[in-house]
Each structure stands twice: as structure tokens, then as C-alpha cells.
């Protein structure tokens, strides 16, 4: 084999190894999805909740793990145990909310405010019928988009 051919093979192998290592490193350190700038499905809190209650198969396909921008009236503002802000959006069903865990805090938000929150929909957790607790639809990694 000619020296120049050997050289080309050697360079190709090194380039391939470097590319594989680079790809591996990129995959390993791949950042989480940029929710703030992601395309979102626009929907009201009432419609989102009702879709999960009346047609859960459709809701699962259309909304779970998707970025949604949910609009509605704030019913409660609190904090979880990791000091993340929790915002409940009214669904029109007593005791049931769009339960949003926020990635960034918005101190001015209070119950009664109209809000739009962008976040990833985890789905509907049915609460407990035996204990009389209605379920919520959960949104994680939330950002307010109208504050």
C-alpha cells in the first residue's frame, strides 16, 4: 500500500474517532428543551382540562410531552418544597386546576389575574375518586408569557 493511501486511512480513522467522541459528548451534555423559545400549542385552561376528562385518548396524543401555552384565571399561587413557584389556573371544575410548576418566579402574580403560561404538559393525574379528590392537569417547566 502506498504511503499516501496509508496516511489518508490514518487521518480518516482519527477523524471518525474524533467525530464519534464529539457526538457522544454532545449527546451527554445535550441541554434540556428551550421552553421559552419553543413553538407552543395555544389553549385555554378549561378546554385543556375538558379534553382530558372527555376524550383522554385524544388529549394524551395531542398534549402529553408537548409545549403548551395555557391561558386562564389564576386561582392560587404557592411554593413547593424546592421553593419553585406553583400556579393553579382555574378549569371551571371545583377543586381541579391546571397545576403549573414554574421554572422562573413571577412575584407579581396573584389569584384573580389573567395569565398565559408556557410549559410542558405531563398529563392528567386522576386524583382519588374514593377520597373525593378531583385530578389536575400538570404543566412543568413553566414560564409566564404575559408578565
Amino acid at each position: 500500500m502506498a504511503t499516501s493511501t496509508k496516511k489518508i486511512i490514518r487521518i480518516s480513522v482519527v477523524a471518525l474517532v474524533l467525530a464519534a467522541v464529539g457526538l457522544g459528548l454532545w449527546m451527554w451534555n445535550k441541554p434540556h428543551k428551550d421552553i421559552k423559545n419553543a413553538h407552543a400549542i395555544d389553549i385555554t385552561a378549561e378546554k385543556l382540562y375538558q379534553t382530558f376528562i372527555t376524550d383522554s385518548a385524544k388529549a394524551k396524543t395531542a398534549y402529553i410531552n408537548q409545549v403548551l401555552e395555557v391561558s386562564g384565571t389564576v386561582s392560587q399561587v404557592s411554593e413547593n418544597q424546592q421553593q419553585q413557584q406553583i400556579i393553579f389556573i382555574n378549569t371551571g371544575v371545583t377543586g381541579a386546576s391546571i397545576n403549573c410548576t414554574m421554572e422562573s418566579k413571577a412575584s407579581s402574580i396573584k389569584p384573580g389575574d389573567q395569565i398565559r403560561i408556557k410549559g410542558v404538559c405531563s398529563g392528567y393525574n386522576s386524583g382519588d375518586a374514593d377520597m373525593g379528590l378531583p385530578g389536575d392537569v400538570f404543566l412543568i417547566r413553566g414560564y409566564p408569557t404575559n408578565n
Binding site: 410531552n65 405531563s122 398529563g123 393525574n125 386524583g127 382519588d128 377520597m131 385530578g135 400538570f138 412543568i140
Partner: peptide, 23 residues
């Protein structure tokens, strides 16, 4: 997972948890 639903009945001790795995 910060979206755990849990109900505790303080009289009977009945206790329930549920969560969505993708959260």
C-alpha cells in the same frame, strides 16, 4: 418529581400517593 398527589386520612391512617412518571 414535584407533582405528587397524596391524600392522608388522619382518622383512619389511610394514605395514598400517585404521580406521573414523565414529570
Amino acid at each position: 418529581n414535584n407533582q405528587v398527589t397524596s391524600v392522608l386520612n388522619t382518622q383512619t391512617g389511610e394514605l395514598q400517593f400517585s404521580l406521573l412518571n414523565n414529570a
